[in-house]
Design a binder for these strands. Structure first.
Length: 456
RNA sequence: GGCGACGUAGCCAAGUGGUUAAGGCGAGGGUCUGCAAAACCCUUAUUCGGCGGUUCGAUUCCGCCCGUCGCCUCCA
């Protein structure tokens, strides 16, 4: 497939180093509930992974948790809990939310606090090679020692200095030098090191974990566009300096950010909707469709109106997957052209909006074919397959079986059928309306009256 | 100020140097239905931010302008 690479700025054929695709995606810093922007990133990379697997690749997906940092320490203190407890709770919440979104779990979720030896080793290596220096218990990366610093974000050191708000710091050789190891204050969580008690800087952890679990050559390194600088720029500087090999990643893949009104949605701006709230409100399929309807590379504005629209769209896909009452005996609907269009779109830098066009056109033709008595099992199987690549579940609406209300609804539906048979339509309609208000949707079909619980 | 992305119908959103500018939602009309709902059919951008340029021909390439956003500090 063709995949865009932020470093070279071009779409290139994706060719993994060896049989297993190595994919590292920057994960979250769990200091507060995850928001829809995190979900968007996860869904895009999940879809990329699903597509690669669909194409026959084996993928090893690693995603870190930054489980120690200033914000975690502050947030824990604010809530009267410990950083460890806070992280545990938020990580669990995150994993549950991702599972609900039908995001396949990463193969490994390394955490900074479990990787201190690897991090220290990498920092030592960088000092030895002259890329880093210790200063009053802190360790800094020397940006001037890495000639191509700025290649990912397409900046120069001069450009970064111009107009930037950088505080002079006597401890550093160059204002852009960044922290690898940070001396801890009294009472903060800390680890021993050759430079005294402290903890790792943010950028080094990803380098260390990526190299530790995936080696010096990643096929895909992903994350939000806001990580390009400084985080990923620094990762390249650290990793390539340490391993002496390049490129660190074949493809730097960055997703556009979720906008909230005029700004990006972010924890620091406080303008966020949590993943959990959105999931409860709209369900996973509609949310995935909302993301996938836009190209991963573009920014997207959060819009509840739009997600509602996707709920309706998901319903139409579900309708296409309902088995025909009586087997179609006519000629079959050949799904191959739809599958080909789907694959061609996905091959082109994961063009999910275009892939969806094929999905919807297959769904429409299945629904039409049903009315025309066509044999549909192959087409339905294909629809199931390609929507699966997009991570859509499209499970039938909950028919409520096994729930306590079930028998009562069943009874009301039966009574209503009697009324209809006796042309007592006013009363029958009244029952239908009242049930609708209570969250039970009733439809009269040639095969009888069907009902289901509606989530909204 | 520097770097980058973007501006397509009521809304969301693909795409292309040239015969019909995907798809979804919404809206209008129809088929079906006791009425609905669902599904299906039809309609819904002579036009792609503005102005120039290149070209036989540009929404698509180039330049300028206007507007929006991201990064340059933590951030998916």
């Amino acid at each position: 497939m063709k995949l865009y690479d932020s470093l070279t700025g071009e779409k290139r054929e994706f060719v993994p180093h060896d049989d297993t695709v190595k994919m590292y995606v920057c994960g979250i810093t769990p200091y507060s509930a995850s928001h829809v922007g995190h979900a968007m990133c996860s869904v895009y990379f999940d879809t990329l992974r699903r597509y690669l697997e669909y194409s026959g690749y084996e993928v090893k997906h690693v995603q870190n948790f930054t489980d120690i940092d200033d914000k975690i320490i502050d947030a824990a203190a604010g809530q009267g809990t410990s950083p460890v407890m806070l992280v545990e709770e938020l990580v669990e919440q995150y994993l549950i939310d991702m599972a609900t979104l039908n995001v396949q779990p990463a193969h490994l979720y390394p955490r900074v606090t479990d990787e201190i030896p690897q991090i220290v080793e990498m920092i030592e290596g960088l000092i030895e090679k002259g890329f880093a220096y210790e200063s009053e218990g802190d360790v800094y990366y020397r940006v001037t020692s890495f000639p191509t610093y700025g290649k990912l974000s397409h900046r120069t050191l001069e450009g970064m200095m111009a107009g930037a708000r950088i505080e002079p710091n006597a401890q550093k050789d160059h204002a852009m030098d960044f922290t690898l190891w940070k001396k801890s204050k009294v009472g903060e969580p800390s680890w021993g090191s050759p430079w005294g008690e402290g903890r790792p800087g943010w950028h080094i952890e990803c380098s260390a974990m990526a190299v530790h679990y995936l080696g010096p050559h990643l096929d895909i390194h992903g994350g939000g566009q806001d990580l390009v600088f400084p985080h990923h720029e620094n990762e390249i500087a650290q990793t390539e300096a340490y391993t002496g090999q390049e490129p660190f990643a074949q493809h730097w893949v960055h997703n556009g950010l979720l906008q909230m009104d005029q700004d990006k949605m972010s924890k620091s701006l406080g303008n966020l909707v949590t993943v959990r709230d959105a999931l409860e409100k709209f369900g996973p399929d509609a949310i995935r469709l909302f993301f996938l309807n836009s190209h991963y590379h573009s920014p997207l504005a959060y819009s509840e109106e739009s997600i509602r629209g996707q709920q309706r769209a998901a319903d139409r896909l579900r309708a296409a997957l309902v088995e025909p009452g009586s087997d179609g005996t006519g000629e079959g609907l050949d799904p191959e052209p739809y599958r080909e269009r789907f694959v061609a779109a996905m091959e082109d830098d994961l063009n999910t909006p275009q892939a969806l066009a094929s999905v919807f056109s297959l769904a429409r033709d299945i629904n039409r074919g049903r009315e025309e008595g066509k044999a549909l099992s192959a087409a339905q199987e294909c629809l199931r397959e390609i929507t699966g690549v997009l991570g859509l579940r499209l499970e039938p609406e909950d028919s409520g079986s096994g729930q306590p209300a079930n028998a009562f609804v069943e009874l009301l539906a039966e009574v209503r059928q009697e009324l209809r048979a006796n042309k007592q339509f006013a009363l029958a309609d009244n029952i239908r309306n009242r049930l609708q208000e209570l969250g039970v949707s009733l439809e009269d079909t040639p095969e009888g009256s069907k009902w289901r619980f509606t989530s909204n």
